Simulated scan of single mutants.
Amino acid sequence: MSTYSQIYIQIVIAVNGRYSLISHTWEEELYKYITGIITNKGQKLIAINGMPDHVHILIGMKPSCCLSDLIREIKKASNAFVNEKRFIKSKFEWQEGFGAFSYSQSALNHVITYIQNQKEHHKKKTFKEEYIDFLKKFEVDYNSAYLFKWIEEED
C-alpha cells in the first residue's frame, strides 16, 4: 500500500430546529455510539463533545472516505439510536447540512482543547456566533438563508 495521508476534519452538526434536546444524562452514550459509527467506517475519532443543540466531532479521515456519506450515516444511525432508546419524548433528528473544517497536525491540540471545552466556551458565545466565526475564519462563502435554522435568542 503506497497511500499515506493525514486529513483532519472538524465536523459540526446541529439538532433539527436547533432545539436543546441532547441531555447531559445521555450525551456520553450518544458520543460513544457516534464513535462506534466512525470507527466501523474505518475512520479515526479524535475528539467529540457538544452542547444540547449541536455536536463537534474531530476525525482523522482516510482519503477513500466520502465525508458526506460518513456524516449521512452518523446522522441516520444516531437518529435511530436516540429514538429507539426513547431519550426524549418527541422525535429526535439532526438538521440538514453540516459544517466541515480542515486542520493541520500542528493545530490538533488546540482543536481538541476547543472541543473538550464546549460547555465553558458557550457561556460566552452562542452557537450561531461560533458557527459564523468558523465560516469567516475559514473564508467559506455562505448564504445566511442556507445556514442552520436558528432559534432566535430571547432578550
Results as ranks from 00 to 15, higher is better:
residue 74 I to W: 03
residue 129 E to M: 11
residue 97 G to L: 09
residue 8 Y to H: 12
residue 115 I to L: 03
residue 88 I to S: 10
residue 82 V to Y: 02
residue 37 I to L: 07
residue 81 F to C: 00
residue 67 L to W: 11
residue 103 Y to T: 03
residue 27 E to G: 03
residue 104 S to K: 09
residue 29 E to S: 03
residue 69 D to W: 08
residue 95 Q to R: 01
residue 80 A to G: 04
residue 140 V to I: 15
residue 118 Q to I: 04
residue 58 L to F: 08
residue 132 I to W: 13
residue 128 K to V: 09
residue 98 F to Q: 07
residue 77 A to V: 00
residue 39 T to C: 14
residue 68 S to P: 05
residue 149 K to I: 13
residue 100 A to R: 05
residue 127 F to K: 08
residue 13 I to K: 01
residue 37 I to V: 11
residue 54 H to S: 00
residue 53 D to V: 03
residue 68 S to T: 04
residue 116 Q to N: 11
residue 136 K to S: 10
residue 77 A to F: 09
residue 100 A to M: 05
residue 130 E to V: 09
residue 60 G to M: 08
residue 25 T to M: 00
residue 1 M to I: 00
residue 130 E to I: 06
residue 132 I to G: 12
residue 71 I to K: 09
residue 135 L to D: 14
residue 148 F to P: 15
residue 11 I to M: 11
residue 52 P to H: 08
residue 45 L to A: 14
residue 100 A to K: 06
residue 35 T to L: 12
residue 93 E to H: 02
residue 3 T to V: 07
residue 144 S to V: 09
residue 18 R to V: 00
residue 69 D to I: 11
residue 61 M to A: 12
residue 44 K to N: 15
residue 95 Q to K: 02
residue 60 G to A: 15
residue 78 S to R: 02
residue 30 L to N: 00
residue 153 E to W: 08
residue 93 E to C: 04
residue 25 T to D: 03
residue 9 I to L: 09
residue 1 M to L: 06
residue 88 I to M: 08
residue 69 D to R: 10
residue 47 A to Q: 15
residue 106 S to N: 14
residue 5 S to P: 05
residue 59 I to Y: 13
residue 79 N to L: 00
residue 153 E to G: 06
